[in-house]
Write a protein that binds this DNA or RNA. Structure first.
Length: 640
DNA sequence: ATCGCCGAGACT
DNA sequence: AGTCTCGGCGAT
């Protein structure tokens, strides 16, 4: 921990430790990230550096497997070298436990091929080989929204109440030095932000989108990122005013953090986890089904099966709802859905009252069985009869394959659909001490199969299977293509949205991300709260007009009680932001970007054919519509 | 432990 | 638009 007092020189060449501009002779240049360091301020004895031809800075040498640090990696490093290097780095990292090493290795082994290594991803993110017109977006962001410490586009951006942006890593290093003032303007950093900085996800998604749009199309495989357009949703699930008061009853789902479409099969990889860049790890536990949903492991918040009858099932939950279930960890017997009387206001019912059939979700599971798709499995603490269920919450246990399905008479006397799930994940199960993931195993003897009817077994070779050569589970056939509609920039729009947006330009999409959570329009004078929610200055202040920061209290109109601070809850997450509201500072960098985007949009719409229609309700598009109608009216005038 | 609200979300 | 769903809460 003490080693974290190491900081490089900033963009102006000023050492961030001693705050002076060191002479040439005292500057060390990192071999890996080529960032300059002030040698005399390093906590490493200078003698050990003397004569060193190749020197790696503390960031690159001690944390070479740590993908969080934005490194300006040298362009000549080939991806395969990086891959080997990163695997070696994981293996040799003394600070990691075996379990952590396994988790890191998951990124290389999760069947998506080796190209999805986060390290490689990071490199490509930092490539600035920009050509073509579209790259002006990244340039636009690049020039403006930079981390005030490393002067790069922030990785995992956070925004201080004084309106300055940082990489999470840089910020943590900064406060780790005991600094309690903004590295940019010296304003005080609130204590809760020091201990618990929140990612400004609007910035994160925006930067990501800009980067994705920059990637040259047609070169190699086009990688699609599915951004669910849900930035207006809360970090934490809730819905109605009542739900906020009474707890999470009827909670709506909160924001979806991962970039996989709802019909995505298999493990959720680091590349689909823009906030953390680690993917959904085996053993990851969430508080409840709502939170589990937010990480994409299992989307339905009540139903146990996710899937489509004509397509397949992506995930199941073991929650103890069916007494017929039988859990043996690496394999289990699952019961289909339906056949229970859900009349009245019950959503679930313990006892069967009719036969189950292979329709709907049950059919979806049968398709996954026939095709040999990997099915994600989550276990809930509500499954009391299972030895393998977590103590609390909902846990992701990896992918399983459905080897067989059939029908039998359930314990309540009605027919139920049954499925044999067998684990086939490259990462060991949370309950094992195995170092390696699953190996193909012979099927268990199932007593009830003797009396089973409608038995279905897989005829074709499975889509997800074990590769002896690579010794890992992987897609042997291409995974089923997502049927979700994705527009040209990879933004996944919900299929049931009433109005489908026309092809939006990247600029317009970016503008839409900058919507105020109150007025839903593009922010003017944007503020970022310490809880990382973004509003127009006027909107946020307007929400608390007439409220004094200090409440005078009286008792029965006679005796004065001690004055009390007014609680002012963030309109998005209900955290008290009264301190922030005393002196909220506009995020000037963000405002600059928004204004430039709006300016560009305006220019573009003036140049474009006005007959093109837009249905987007962002501020930029609004202006455009206005311009369009003006043009049309002028045309009418000319015609008449 | 059980029961009754609440009115989400996806499939059909 | 109707139907179905291995939730979550507070009250009992």
């Amino acid at each position: 921990m003490a080693q974290h007092s190491n900081l490089p020189c900033n963009g102006d060449g000023v050492c961030m430790v001693c705050q002076t501009k060191p002479p040439e002779a005292e500057i060390l240049c990192c071999n890996t990230c080529v960032s300059p360091w002030h040698a005399t301020c390093l906590s490493i004895p200078l003698e050990t550096l003397a004569g060193a031809v190749e020197w790696d800075c503390p960031d690159c040498s001690s944390a070479s497997a740590d993908h969080e640090i934005p490194l300006a990696t040298t362009a000549e490093s080939s991806s395969s070298n990086l891959l080997i290097a990163s695997i070696r780095a994981i293996e040799s990292d003394q600070s990691l436990t075996d379990q952590e090493k396994a988790k890191r290795r998951q990124n290389f082994m999760s069947g998506g091929g080796l190209g999805s290594s986060p390290l490689e991803e990071n490199v490509s993110n930092n490539e600035t080989t920009i050509n073509g017109d579209d790259n002006s977006f990244v340039n636009l962001l690049d020039g403006r929204i930079n981390c005030s410490i490393c002067m790069q586009l922030p990785e995992r951006p956070i925004t201080t109440p004084c309106g300055h942006n940082f990489c999470l890593k840089c910020f943590q290093k900064w406060v780790g030095l005991g600094k309690r003032s903004c590295a940019n303007c010296r304003s005080e950093i609130p204590p809760n932000m020091v201990t618990n900085p929140r990612i400004n996800s609007v910035l994160a998604v925006t930067i990501r989108m800009a980067k994705v749009s920059t990637k040259a199309p047609g070169v190699g495989e086009k990688r699609l990122y599915h951004f669910v357009h849900n930035q207006n949703r809360p970090e934490k699930a809730y819905t109605t005013e009542r739900a906020k008061k009474a707890g999470k009853a009827n909670a709506c789902s909160g924001k979806i953090f991962v970039t996989v479409p709802p019909d995505y099969f298999g493990p959720i990889l680091a590349e689909n986890d823009p906030d953390r860049n680690q993917g959904v790890l085996v053993g990851e536990t969430w508080e409840d089904r709502m939170e589990c949903r937010q990480w994409g492991a299992h989307l339905p918040h009540i139903a146990g099966i996710a899937g489509q009858a004509d397509y397949g099932s992506q995930s199941v939950a073991l929650s103890g709802g069916y007494v017929d279930d039988e859990d043996h960890g690496e394999w289990f017997l699952y019961t289909g859905s339906g056949g229970r009387d859900l009349s009245g206001n019950k959503r679930i019912n313990k006892t069967q009252s009719s036969d189950q059939k292979f329709v709907k979700f049950n059919e979806a599971l049968r398709i996954s069985c026939k095709k040999g798709y990997p099915v994600r499995v989550v276990r809930s603490h509500k499954e009391k009869r299972s030895f393998y269920a977590p103590e609390t919450g909902v846990r992701y246990d990896g992918v399983y394959r459905i080897e067989k399905c059939w029908r039998k008479i359930g314990v309540h006397g009605f027919k139920v659909c049954r499925y044999l799930f067998v684990r086939c994940d490259n990462v060991p199960a949370p309950w094992t001490s195995d170092e390696h993931g699953d190996r193909p195993r012979s099927l268990p003897a199932i007593e009830e199969l003797k009396k089973a009817t409608d038995v279905t077994e897989r005829k074709e070779s499975p889509s997800w299977d074990y590769d002896e050569e690579k010794s890992c589970w992987m897609w042997k056939k291409p995974p089923p293509e997502s049927r979700q509609r994705v527009n040209d920039g990879g933004v996944y729009e919900k299929t049931n949205t009433k109005r489908r947006t026309q092809a939006m330009t990247v600029r317009e999409r970016l503008l839409k991300e900058f919507n105020c959570l109150i007025c839903k329009k593009v922010m003017s004078f944007p503020l970022t709260t310490p809880c990382a929610h973004n509003f127009c200055k006027a909107c946020l202040e307007g929400a608390f007009t007439g409220q004094a920061f200090i409440k005078e209290r009286t008792c029965n109109g006679r005796r004065n009680l001690r004055a009390q601070k007014t609680i002012m809850k963030c309109p998005s997450c209900s955290i008290d932001i009264s301190d922030f509201l005393q002196n909220p500072q506009v995020n000037r960098e963000l405002m600059g970007v928004i204004e430039s985007l709006q300016h560009e949009s305006k220019k573009e719409s003036e140049n474009n054919d006005p007959s093109e229609e837009e249905t987007n309700d962002g501020g930029g598009a609004e202006k455009k519509l206005k311009l369009v109608s003006e043009d049309e009216s002028s045309v009418t005038i000319l015609a008449s």
